[in-house]
């Protein structure tokens, strides 16, 4: 069997400031299961180290590093952004929503203006972006409007469109997904998209989630968190990039007892029912925190150990740490 030469893993290591980490475990809970843990968005939550959740799209301390990594990926693989032709109005609605969301957070860097002539003007001094466009233009600064938004925000972006009372992936602009392929997902139904996930596919949970999403009122904003264990500070854990990763890295991390370098990978997900198109804008902000850093916060250390110890085997496998769980738990107890 021949294998193409492996591309060296040159992705930079990223760490979310602990004060901004969306800690995914309920206060006081020692266990974790999948559930539709959704709540209304735009409400700040205090954690043991700081807070999160004030905004839907948030420009945090990691913005320059995250945007540099995103730009590098999109330059290399433009197919990380793709859209069905009918998604243009929803993509435009997402773009205007997203820029209006981040512009007031950094007035020193961003400027969004709607002229009397109807032209939208955007300026981002940090990234050196300047463009003007009219609502509905097929391209914004040379990119699809959803890709144009992806170039300005830290979040991965998905547009889900309703058809015959089901949801379908109408557009994707994502560079930091977990171990799945966002470029494959374009056009897929919500149910098919989630079919490989253990436990949730047969529990009726996907159907219930889809019903919930379809019942959202125009303008509603909801959020949830999710998490997994990952072996490096690489933001791009996607299947697209899986050939770039060193396959022995996770195993070595475990066998060499370098558990402190493992990362808690948190997805802060937001759902927005865009009022003018009825589309759902699904946002994932990926955060990474090293175990060595997490255990400096005593409440987090104790809770994380309890959750990891209790999680059933199939979920531990899916979350990425079943193979080295005993050693990992011992590490917590050192």
């Amino acid at each position: 069997m021949t294998t193409a030469p492996r591309t060296p893993d040159t992705a930079p290591s990223y760490a979310t400031p602990l004060a901004e980490l969306a800690w995914p475990f309920e206060p006081g809970a020692d266990t974790y299961r999948y559930w539709i843990n959704v709540e209304r968005g735009r409400r700040p939550v205090a954690t043991a180290a700081g807070s999160w959740g004030r905004h839907v799209l948030e420009v945090d301390g990691g913005y320059p590093a995250v945007m540099a990594e995103r730009t590098a990926i999109l330059d290399r693989e433009p197919r990380r952004c793709s859209a069905l032709p009918h998604a243009l109005p929803a993509a435009w609605e997402a773009l205007e929503f997203g820029l209006a969301e981040i512009a007031p957070q950094r007035p020193d860097l961003f400027r969004l203006q709607r002229g009397d002539d109807g032209v939208l003007r955007w300026r981002n001094d940090l990234l050196g972006t300047r463009w003007s466009a009219r609502t509905g233009d097929p391209l914004v600064d040379g990119a699809h409007p959803l890709a144009a938004l992806a170039g300005q925000v830290q979040e991965d972006l998905f547009l889900l469109g309703p058809r015959e009372d089901r949801l379908y992936v109408d557009a994707v602009a994502a560079t930091f997904t977990g171990s799945w392929s966002s470029s494959f997902s374009l056009g897929m139904s919500f149910a098919d998209l989630h079919s490989p996930v253990p436990r949730i596919r047969d529990s009726g949970m996907v159907d219930r989630t889809e019903r919930f999403l379809l019942s959202l009122d125009p303008g509603d904003v909801y959020r949830r968190t999710n998490w997994s264990i990952y072996d490096s500070g690489r933001l791009d854990a996607s299947l697209e990039a899986s050939h770039r990763r060193d396959p022995g890295h996770a195993v070595r991390s475990a066998t060499e007892h370098r558990y402190g370098s493992l990362r808690l990978r948190v997805e802060l997900q937001h759902l927005v029912r865009l009022p003018a198109t009825g589309a759902l804008l699904f946002l994932i902000k990926t955060q990474l925190a090293a175990f060595a850093d997490i255990v400096t916060v005593p409440q987090w250390a104790g809770q994380l150990r309890s959750v990891l110890a209790e999680l059933p085997e199939d979920m531990a496998a899916y979350k990425g740490f079943a193979r080295y769980r005993p050693g990992l738990l011992d590490w917590f107890d050192l």
Binding site: T177, G178, S179, W180, S181, S185, L193, H194, S195, P196, V197, N226, S228, D231, L239, S242, H243, R245, P247, H249, A250, V251, E267, A317, Y318, G320
Partner: peptide, 14 residues
């Protein structure tokens, strides 16, 4: 499809 890596769980959104 994808390259077969030990840590690449074939999966969709979690």
């Amino acid at each position: 499809g994808s390259v077969d890596t030990p840590d690449a769980a074939p999966g969709a959104a979690r």
